[in-house]
């Protein structure tokens, strides 16, 4: 893990997770590396999209991956920088298992002056059996 990074992902999540949309979803920090971050949301009945099955809605997974991939960008450039999501594509590979936390790992695999390219996967316990795959781009809105 980067030791001299000006951007502290764990601290960023602990301040962000207590308020705003991350707080509503119960976002948690798990881990990070030089160009990736891992966040989680715990299963909650408030996040259910289909009451008959108890399966989590897809929206919280999209939001989780938006945040995990955004964090990966700030980690890679070692600072926070305002950005706007250009597009985000999510493939829902299978329903998340009711009762299990969903862990999302986002990676920034290419950084240009104005655009960041990201990808990631979400799983509910076994990274080899993912629930979702994402690809997206972000545009920087500040220098």
């Amino acid at each position: 893990m980067p030791v001299d990074s000006a951007f502290d992902p764990e601290r960023f999540v602990s301040t962000l997770a207590s308020r705003a949309h991350g707080g509503l979803l119960g976002l948690r920090y798990i881990a990070h590396g030089a160009d990736w971050s891992e966040l989680a949301i715990d299963y909650s009945e408030r996040l259910i999209g289909d009451e008959a099955s108890g399966v989590l809605a897809s929206g919280p997974i999209l939001a989780l991956m938006d945040m995990a991939t955004s964090m990966a960008i700030w980690i890679r450039q070692q600072r926070f920088r305002a950005q706007a999501t250009l597009d985000l594509r999510v493939d829902y590979l299978r329903p998340a298992t009711p009762g299990k936390a969903v862990i999302g790992r986002g990676e920034c695999y290419r950084l240009t002056r104005s655009v960041a390219f990201v990808r990631g996967q979400a799983h509910d316990g076994d990274p080899a059996d993912p629930v979702a795959h994402v690809a997206g781009t972000y545009m920087f809105t500040s220098p």
Binding site: R19, A20, H21, G22, G23, L24, L25, G49, A57, S58, G59, P60, L62, A63, L64, D66, M67, A82, T85, L88
Partner: peptide, 24 residues
């Protein structure tokens, strides 16, 4: 506050969740 990302702006995830729910 619950659908906010950075101060003053909606969170992209909340917008995505709204769009998915509108489609469903």
């Amino acid at each position: 506050v619950g659908v906010m990302g950075r101060p003053g702006f909606l969170h992209g995830g909340a917008i995505g969740g709204l769009l998915e729910m509108a489609a469903f």
